[in-house]
Nucleic acid binder design. Structure first.
Length: 278
DNA sequence: CCCGGAACCTGAAGGC
DNA sequence: TGCCTTCAGGTTCCGG
C-alpha cells in the first residue's frame, strides 16, 4: 500500500532512468485506469513527449513533460511501477500489468496493479488532479501551528483525520498508526480535542516516522516491490502497524487492532491511553 | 455542509 | 478438496 514514503522511494528510484527520456508507444491494458482524457487519447498524445522531471505530491507521482502537460499516476492499494528493458522477462510478482509506457532508450515503464484501482491522468494543469491536497508533511513550510489549525476543524477520530488527504497529504493507514504511537495518542481521540503538547508531539512523530520510512525505502507489505525489484525494509521497523497480537516494542503489552471508520487500526493500549470517559 | 457507508477491484484466508 | 464469505484500504460518489 504505497503511501508517501513508498511513493517518494519510487520517484527517487525512477528519476535517473526517466529524466530526459521521451515516451514512444503506449499500451493500456485496462482502459478504465485512465481518468482523463480517454485511454485512446492518452495513447495518441503521450508518444513523443519528453519527461523534464518526475516528482511526488502526497501519494501521487507527477511526470512534468516538456510540453507543459503533466502525467499523474496514483498507485492506490496494489499498484507498483517497474522499469525494465523491452523484452526482458517479468518478475513473478509482476503478473498484473495494466499499462506499458515505452521509452526512447529501449526501456519501458510498467504499471502493475492486481486490483485495478490505480489511476492515470494526463492534464494541462496539475490542479485538476491534485489541487485540493493538504500540505506536504515534510515540506519546509509545514509547522505544528498549521497542523493545530487544521486539526481544530475536525471532530472525527484523529486516526481518520490524519488519513484525510485534504488535511495533510500522503499519510495513509500504516503511517497514521505509527505516528499516533510515537505521539502516545489514542487513535479514537477527537482531532479537535488534542492539547498543544499533543499536537507538538504528533507533528514531530509524523516527520520522524515518514523520514525514517523513506530512509528504509518504504514498507514492503505483501508483494509490494520498488521499481528496482528490491523490497523496502520499513515493515521490519513498524512498532504497531500490521503487528496485531504481537507485543509492544516499548512496554511489551499486546498490540490491539480495532476498526476506525472501517479501517484496520493498530495501537498499544498502554502507550496510547484511550479518550477520557472509557 | 457534514458524516458514514458503498463502490471500485481481486486474491488471500478462513469456515464448513 | 472446494465452494462460499470476508477482508484488505485509497479515493470517489451518494444518500441522509
Amino acid at each position: 500500500m504505497p503511501e508517501l514514503p513508498e511513493v517518494e522511494t519510487i520517484v527517487n528510484d525512477l528519476r535517473p532512468g526517466l529524466k530526459g527520456r521521451s515516451f514512444t508507444d503506449i499500451t493500456i491494458l485496462w482502459p478504465r485506469m485512465v481518468l482523463r482524457p480517454s485511454a485512446e487519447e492518452l495513447r495518441q498524445r503521450l508518444p513523443g513527449q519528453t519527461i523534464q522531471d518526475i516528482g511526488r505530491r502526497g501519494k501521487y507521482l507527477i511526470f512534468r513533460l516538456a510540453s507543459g502537460e503533466v502525467l499523474i499516476l496514483h498507485l492506490r492499494m496494489t499498484g507498483s511501477l517497474l522499469l525494465k528493458q523491452k523484452g526482458e522477462p517479468l518478475a513473478k510478482n509482476s503478473s498484473y500489468i495494466r499499462a506499458v509506457f515505452g521509452l526512447d532508450d529501449g526501456m519501458e515503464l510498467l504499471f502493475n496493479d492486481r486490483r485495478k484501482l490505480g489511476t492515470v491522468s494526463l492534464v494541462k494543469d496539475e490542479k485538476e488532479v491534485i489541487g485540493k491536497l493538504g500540505p506536504e508533511p515534510l515540506g519546509a513550510s509545514f509547522t505544528a501551528k498549521e497542523l493545530a489549525e487544521r486539526l481544530s476543524k475536525h471532530k472525527a477520530p484523529i486516526k481518520a483525520v490524519l488519513c484525510d488527504q485534504e488535511v495533510i497529504a500522503g499519510i495513509g493507514n500504516m503511517y497514521a498508526d505509527e505516528a499516533l504511537f510515537f505521539a502516545n495518542i489514542h487513535p479514537l481521540r477527537a482531532a479537535n480535542s488534542l492539547s498543544p503538547e499533543e499536537i507538538e508531539r504528533l507533528y514531530r512523530a509524523i516527520q520522524k516516522v515518514l523520514s525514517k520510512a523513506i530512509g528504509n525505502g518504504g514498507a514492503s507489505i505483501s508483494d509490494y516491490r520498488r521499481p528496482t525489484g528490491e523490497k523496502g525494509s520499513q515493515q521490519n521497523d513498524f512498532y504497531v502497524a500490521h503487528r496485531g497480537g504481537q507485543t509492544c516494542k516499548v512496554c511489551a503489552t499486546p498490540i490491539e487492532r480495532i476498526p476506525v471508520r472501517n479501517r484496520g487500526t493498530y495501537f498499544c493500549p498502554r502507550c496510547q491511553r484511550p479518550p477520557t470517559g472509557s
